[in-house]
Design a protein around this nucleic acid. Structure first.
Lengths: 245, 245
DNA sequence: GTAGTTCGATTGTCCGGACATACGGATTGA
DNA sequence: TCAATCCGTATGTCCGGACAATCGAACTAC
């Protein structure tokens, strides 16, 4: 019954990470059933030839992911699954792709414009600064799903229309060496204007889902501001969140 | 310039936690300016009379919160703020209260009903099982803001209407010893039905923001399912999220 | 029978050290 | 002048141990 765990000391992959991966796989695969105890850390460490801190580090990473729960005096148990995606900072493109839908993108605009007051405030620039502005229509199964407007500060990235139609914006940014760190976002709803209605093939006044997001890199610099609208019959925000204790 | 950090070894508060609090306070207060280096861990440990693992644990907790960034070979720097609330599992009540608005709640229903197929699936019960059903109208400044429908499995909690009008549901659950662990939620939009429109003082067909959420405790048991609608002119979902690397 | 106590088990915290690894700047070489 | 290399520095990983705090169950006393 006990898992056959093992670590490869010659691998460059950290030992705690190897262990965490194996435990996660065992949980996913069903070898470790929900609610079952994991066995105490000391014994587990001895069995694997690891030290307790290393084993603890592996377990802790899974606790942070919400897969395990520790109880002092009791042990570490597997949470009754239900955990899937802990809400990452993901692009719509990645979301769609991982959902099996092959997303298509039509770039409607890719220009440089002076920043409006709202954009300037979001990006932390002076009003009127030249910023990139891209407008994209995202389709799934040939149907329009979302209308995406993004603003990027100057000199950060070469925005190639061809690339934008082939992949997501975040991938391009990561590929350019930008390390995304955090984002502030706001999700709301409102009725479609006439122009929006036409672009999304909805009647005027139809309910739309809206999302505004400012993304920051790890130096705290704003690297992107997006103002997006979604067809609620085609898309909704699904995510999981954990209680940080 | 260097902070006056200190730890109290006689305190029951863990040393790493004391240090983390002081660092966080220094960042909040501005003593540690964004972008500044934190000084290497070894020296910091020596200065405080702590070991490096303890100092690392403190720093790591702030990295997890998004306040600090570590760079190998460089050091640990303070992120250019912008970080505020990393999206907790919060109730609308708490959100409103912390925003300075004094929320009011009107309980419109508090009964026991057989679970519909949807509710049963969400709570992991058999269809037809008796569940608590509460309907609440949430107001701010006397204006209706949201219409909240919640379902709870039987035998979990005594739902007192008076308490429900005085505080939020999550607080009652926590007070009853339930440790909330995670939640799956879905945010969308649609037009208001005639009944919804009247309850929220909106015209029929008006865009509404919708949220469905199933909350689980740390054993993985579903403890609540909510089906909520919000007036988008009065409320939107604002949150911050971090990139888990 | 019930309430209080003791005790084993398990995680939480903390220590001091060791070596590996990656980044950035200085140095060196073409 | 520019590119490749070296090296100091700081974090990343890992070890082995020690004691404290907490939970749950068995035990005891009333």
């Amino acid at each position: 019954m006990s898992l056959d765990l093992s670590v490869d000391r010659s691998s460059p992959v950290p030992l705690y990470f190897q262990l965490a991966q194996q435990l996660e796989a065992a949980i996913e695969h069903g070898s470790l059933t929900p609610g079952s105890l994991l066995g105490n850390e000391i014994e587990l460490a001895a069995r694997l030839g690891l030290s307790r801190p290393t084993v603890r580090q592996a377990i802790q990473s899974l606790v942070d992911k919400g897969l395990l729960v520790r109880r002092r005096g009791v042990g570490t148990q597997v949470v009754h699954s239900q955990v899937k995606r802990p809400l990452e900072l993901s692009s719509l493109y990645d979301d769609l792709e991982s959902a099996g839908q092959r997303p298509a993108t039509k770039v409607l605009a890719n220009t440089v414009v002076p920043a409006s007051a709202e954009v300037a405030a979001a990006l932390g620039l002076a009003e009127g600064t030249e910023v990139h502005r891209i407008e994209r229509l995202r389709l799934a199964h040939g149907e329009p799903m979302a209308y995406l407007t993004n603003y990027l500060p100057p000199g950060l990235l070469d925005l190639d229309t061809v690339q934008l139609e082939a992949t997501g914006l975040y991938r391009l940014m990561r590929a350019a060496g930008i390390t995304l760190h955090s984002a502030r976002q706001s999700i709301g709803a409102r009725g479609a204007t006439a122009a929006e209605a036409e672009r999304l093939a909805e009647p005027e006044g139809a309910p739309l889902l809206t999302m505004q997001r400012t993304t920051y890199d790890d130096t705290g610099r704003a690297v992107e501001f997006g103002d997006h609208i979604y067809r609620p019959t085609r898309y909704s925000f699904e995510f999981q969140l954990l209680v940080r204790s």
